[in-house]
Design a protein around this nucleic acid. Structure first.
Lengths: 329, 329
DNA sequence: TACAGTAATGTAATCCGTTACATAATTAAC
DNA sequence: GTTAATTATGTAACGGATTACATTACTGTA
């Protein structure tokens, strides 16, 4: 496998000239350029990124931290990130942390070891302390999930408002007893969404009933099933559920269906995220659409700016309530 | 940011010694090792993979080519690959090709440019010629989807037999008119699955009816919906459908439900892959379980062997028919 | 023709580890 | 106490590109 020296020799020029041709610098004369290009072709030369990366002290790789690849919520975001990254000659390394600090640390090591130029973190369970420390030396952006007030730029939606609107929609459909299926309030988004839920209720003079709030361990299908089982069993059963993720909502849907009840007649359901599957269920799911692709592209652009050494500001994007069959028969 | 020279100086030893400590070679005396470790700690030194990779002519990165990240079928495979990769100190670069030769070529370039040490291809639409050419110089493994007879090792299941068993199950449930929802027969797996379908039918003395075979452009939900629409409209309607992917089957399910018919009473449905979501539908989906995680680990191990320069043989793994609600009321 | 100014090209340092080989230090053996 | 054998450490080349700076070639002008 040829290297740049051999190309230079073969073309009868210096390595500097070859490098100039490779990088499209216009200080090379036409005929020299031709000679070099010919040599490249003849030797089947491909410049090694290893040499180039070392010299440039960059890896052209960015990390994406996600808790699990199984949650389709992240897919669109990843696509957004990827498209921007590729167009700027970056590649992305998808890192599944399982919210496990040890796995996380393996990935953090990659940036410490210069194997990655930056990180987009989407793990709500990320170790904020480590992240903060890392952010002092490396380019880091938080996407969708973020620790507030730690000085790391983030891109997100207004979770409180989104939740408010989702619940308001249920209220407008005539529901008065609305359950909330939420995750642990250690997560900022969980606290924010609960606040929106509360605001919508209180605006209608309904006091928030703690018995209608159900906490799940994760945001997955099974958690939704389990929580729904409980909801179906309480006295003074609610007539609607707002779940903070589509997978939770789909789990709820499944459980309601299995119990012989009808959605939305017996129980309305609202999800959050608008993952692809939310449109494949029966009935289709009313949900809050996060602008996932846009979040991805935005985060990627921010990260690249950060890598370049520029300052970047956090961004709050718009969301949209998508009304489908699970609330409107 | 400290480098190895500074560590060496600080510890009063040579760079060689530092390198030996870093790589855990046992030719370093106890006290020297201690000195070096102390220096590393004091300087907050992290070895740069850029230097190391250049010297070792490796990137410790492997590519995974998938047509789209949206298809959850790949997720478990990816997990399998990732776990093996990580435990061997490799990282994976997930490459979505969209079955687009141009995007594909961007990724192929990464291995040409030494940015990646090998490729696991899962793209059925991959350019076989390029792949073959590349495989002469670089480590390549095909996973799940493969071009036969091109000399590139693959890991897969026996598609013909799997399909045979799925259809046989439908026959055993009493169905005689069974539709096949297949993709373009340019794909090997599509041809194989059709053969299994045919064999099962003919074994029961049923002649394959071309009117019962429906070709879809992709393996996605929408394609399943559309195909199902057609199926519901033909005269002498079948009573069961075998779809070659779960997403197709879920699309079919949705369409049948929407039309007011019942699964499995009016129409039984069998899918293929056993993606997570196949268990979340209503009714749950009977499907052929591919050992996806195992496929991933196997492919990864094969690739690593290949990178090491060893010869590897193709592998055919077992599958399993998972009978759920969509065929057995 | 000579000289200044510009364009083209070359030289060599640099990025940061790894490791073959050389050398120094230690231990073992007699 | 020597010498041989072993262990520990050091020196310097190497991997493959980029680029500041130096040098050479060329163009234009008086």
């Amino acid at each position: 496998m040829a290297n740049i020296q051999q190309v230079a020799k073969h073309a009868g020029v210096s390595v500097a000239t070859v490098s100039r041709v490779l990088n499209g610098q216009n200080t090379v004369s036409g005929k020299t350029k031709l000679k070099v290009e010919e040599a490249i072709k003849e030797l089947n030369y491909e410049p090694s990124m290893l040499g180039r990366n070392l010299r440039n002290s960059e890896s052209r790789i960015v990390l994406i931290l996600i808790p699990t690849i199984s949650n389709p919520f992240y897919l669109e975001i990843i696509k957004g990130i990827e498209n921007i990254a590729i167009s700027h000659n970056y590649n992305i390394l998808l890192c599944e942390t399982d919210s496990d600090p040890e796995k996380e640390d393996i990935y953090f090591d990659l940036v410490r070891k210069k194997m990655a130029d930056g990180i987009i973190s989407m793990d709500p369970a990320v170790n904020v302390e480590t992240l903060k420390e890392l952010a002092e030396k490396y380019a880091i952006i938080q996407c969708s999930e973020y620790g507030g007030g730690i000085g790391i730029p983030y891109v997100t939606i207004d979770n409180e408002e989104a939740s408010y609107r989702a619940v308001k929609h249920l209220l407008q459909m005539g529901h008065k007893k609305i359950a909330l299926m939420n995750t642990d309030e250690k997560f900022l988004y969980a606290r924010e969404r609960k606040m929106g839920y509360q605001r919508a209720l209180e605006e209608q003079g309904i006091e928030m009933n703690e018995n209608y709030i159900f906490y799940t361990k994760d945001l997955e299908f099974e958690n939704g099933q389990q929580a729904m089982k409980k909801i179906l069993n309480i006295t003074d059963r609610p007539t609607a559920v707002f779940a903070v993720s589509d997978l939770l909502a789909i789990g709820a849907l499944k459980e309601i269906n299995s119990s012989g009840m009808n959605v939305p007649d017996d129980m309305a359901v609202v999800g959050f995220d608008k993952i692809d599957f939310s449109n494949m269920t029966n009935p289709t799911l009313t949900t809050v659409a996060q602008p996932m692709y846009k979040m991805g592209t935005t985060a990627a652009k921010m990260l690249i700016e950060k890598i370049r050494g520029n300052k970047v500001d956090s961004v709050v994007l718009d969301f949209e309530l998508v009304i489908r069959e699970s609330t409107a028969g």
